[in-house]
């Protein structure tokens, strides 16, 4: 029996809204918002430091923003937020035993996963993209708006890259959450172990990380990217974007398959 696209969309949207309501008002979100504010705080600190003539720190707004984007946003905040939400997508419903209400509806389990993934992407974007915008404003805004306007195209690129990173990491952690019984540890090992370490190895293995493709399209000269590029070439930008999109689709598809086939046994 064929199901109309409109109905499919309604089902996915309902799952996404139920998930969002739970995620948005959770303690997790409060904690993530604090961490996000901390990253903006780092931007404020950099701006304050650069304002003191006696410090004489030779960095431009572009350098400060690039470093902040690389170290605090891409390599930390994005991984942290998606790890936090992604690993909890299914496992928290299993622990909370609410998964029964969703799995006993006449909709395929993969759609449930997709709805939940969209909720994850939405809330991650809402919490992380404003950090990029706010940091840019803090570091660039001066009485002379020339630099602010000149680099605004880079800002748009940054926002796009962060969104792609959220999508890819979110999908990966959704898979980890659907697959493992205690996914936080597995997620930490992947997010800060594998991704952090392998992307700096020479040879082909670094292409097995999401970080590599993000660094390949990263528009700033950042220290982490420079180290990574010492051991090998960047992947061309177009290929990196396509790879990130494909990885996202692959992770979501495998997560959906896992959810469909796995038995989630609720603790009595």
């Amino acid at each position: 029996m064929a199901v109309s696209p409109l109905r499919t969309w309604r089902e996915i949207r309902t799952i996404a809204l139920v998930t969002l309501d739970t995620l948005f008002w959770s303690k997790k979100t409060f904690f993530v918002a604090l961490i996000s504010a901390f990253v903006v705080g780092l931007a404020v600190l950099a701006r304050v430091v650069s304002a003191f003539a006696w410090v004489r720190v030779p960095f431009t707004p572009a350098q400060a923003f690039g470093t902040l984007m690389s170290t605090a946003v891409i390599h930390f905040l994005v991984v942290f937020v998606t790890l936090f939400y992604g690993t909890a997508l299914i496992s928290e419903e299993v622990e909370g035993k609410t998964i029964t209400y969703l799995f006993l509806r006449p909709i395929p389990k993969p759609k449930i996963l997709v709805g939940k993934y969209l909720a994850l992407l939405w809330i991650s974007a809402v919490l992380v993209l404003p950090v990029v915008l706010a940091s840019y404003c803090v570091l660039y805004l001066r009485s002379d708006l020339r630099a602010f306007l000149e680099d605004s195209s880079t800002l748009a690129l940054d926002l796009g890259i962060v969104f792609l990173a959220l999508a890819a990491y979110g999908a990966m952690f959704a898979l980890v959450g659907a697959w493992l019984r205690h996914p936080i540890l597995g997620g930490l090992l992947y997010g800060f172990g594998w991704e952090g370490f392998v992307s700096y190895l020479p040879g082909f293995t670094r292409k097995l990380t999401i970080t590599h493709y993000i660094q390949s399209i990263f528009p700033h000269d950042d220290p982490a990217g420079a180290i990574a590029m010492l051991v090998g070439e960047r992947t061309p930008a177009g290929e990196s974007v396509v790879t990130l999109a494909l990885l996202t689709a692959l992770f979501v598809a495998v997560a959906a398959l896992v959810v469909r086939e796995k038995e989630y046994v609720l603790e009595q």
């Binding site: 029996m1 139920v18 309501d21 739970t22 909370g96 035993k97 609410t98 029964t100 006993l104 509806r105 006449p106 909709i107 395929p108 609720l266």
Partner: peptide, 17 residues
């Protein structure tokens, strides 16, 4: 999945959104 149109389940566990 289509079978779930015909099934209603009241679980034992006290779990809700």
């Amino acid at each position: 999945y289509p079978l779930f149109h015909r099934i209603g389940f009241c679980p034992e566990q006290d779990a809700f959104y």
